[in-house]
């Protein structure tokens, strides 16, 4: 290909980016920088916030809880999402559409609405417990909200579209002839899944897991509304220090830690996505 003159020259292109860049600079980069600054500055530069943090048993406990809940929610979302993605990938495109809309629907619903809906469903006298009581003829009150199960279910509900879509996109790039070829060669459906479909979908699985985990560790409303007292996560801890103890440097330090962890995960995600070779090979 010969070099063609771009439609916009360099400066015109940058000019078009300016409004968005300004918006992000004012409402995203500046507050973020402020937060980082605040975690180091109390009447002069200090590491007090980080020292307090690292020696605080509460912080370590919450960090552990955050990772445990996020990990469990991610795995549950993976196990629940993979079969859905697999099924969707095998539908003809026009039949896949309505199901995709159903997968996407939670995206367009407020997380508050979803959380309250889950309380109505899973509560002490909720629809699920009532239905079970009706079926078994005796009052059943399985505790499913305001505990870890509730927090995880709420998070899984939020994570599923992300998980399903990233696995689906990777399944859809697979050449259908691979399965056919394997079938002609005598492979069973299970062998085809284990030796071909699953390994080739690993980039999608990895991407889904990383996105889900990254989203999970920053979750705030869902664990606050659906979780129990013991299920405080990092975001809730930030809230606690911001509004209850008014220790803003400490809250900022936690935010910086959370940002770093997310940053590492997003960088890993970039690696998975950037492994274009894998995607190209799945073609």
């Amino acid at each position: 290909m010969s070099e063609t003159k771009p439609y916009l020259d360099r400066w015109a292109g940058l000019a078009l980016l300016l409004p968005m860049a300004a918006l992000l600079a004012i409402f995203f980069v500046y507050p973020l920088a402020r937060t980082v600054w605040q975690s180091f500055y109390e009447y002069g530069f200090t590491l007090r916030a980080y020292e307090t943090l690292l020696s605080s048993t509460l912080f370590w406990k919450v960090l552990k809880t955050t990772f445990a809940i996020s990990f469990t929610a991610t795995i549950v979302a993976l196990l629940a999402g993979y079969p859905v993605a697999l099924h969707l990938s095998r539908l003809p495109p026009q039949r896949r559409m309505p199901y995709l809309v159903m997968v996407m629907l939670p995206f367009w619903t407020s997380i508050l609405v979803k959380s309250f809906a889950l309380i109505v469903l899973l509560g002490y006298d909720g629809i699920v417990n009532n239905a079970l009581s009706f079926v078994f003829g005796s009052p059943i009150h399985i505790p499913m909200v305001f505990n870890r199960v509730g927090a995880i279910l709420g998070m899984v509900n939020y994570l599923l579209p992300f998980m399903i879509l990233s696995i689906l996109s990777s399944l859809l790039t697979q050449d259908v002839n691979l399965g056919r070829a394997a079938e002609v060669m005598g492979a069973s459906r299970f062998t085809i899944f284990r030796r071909i479909t699953l390994p080739l979908s690993m980039p999608g699985v990895l991407a889904g897991v990383l996105i889900s985990f990254t989203l999970s560790i920053g979750m705030y409303i869902t664990p606050a509304l659906l979780g129990g007292r013991q299920d405080m996560m990092m975001a809730n801890l930030i809230d606690f220090y911001t509004r209850q103890t008014l220790d803003w440097p400490l809250a900022s330090a936690i935010a910086v830690v959370l940002l770093l962890v997310s940053g590492v995960l997003v960088a890993m995600l970039g690696q998975v996505r950037g492994a274009g070779g894998m995607k190209e090979m799945a073609r």
């Binding site: 050449d175 002839n177 691979l178 056919r180 030796r195 080739l200 799945a282 073609r283």
Partner: peptide, 10 residues
């Protein structure tokens, strides 16, 4: 044998 070879890329 398929037109696009259908070799397992992995």
């Amino acid at each position: 044998v398929f037109q696009n070879y259908a070799l397992m890329p992995h």
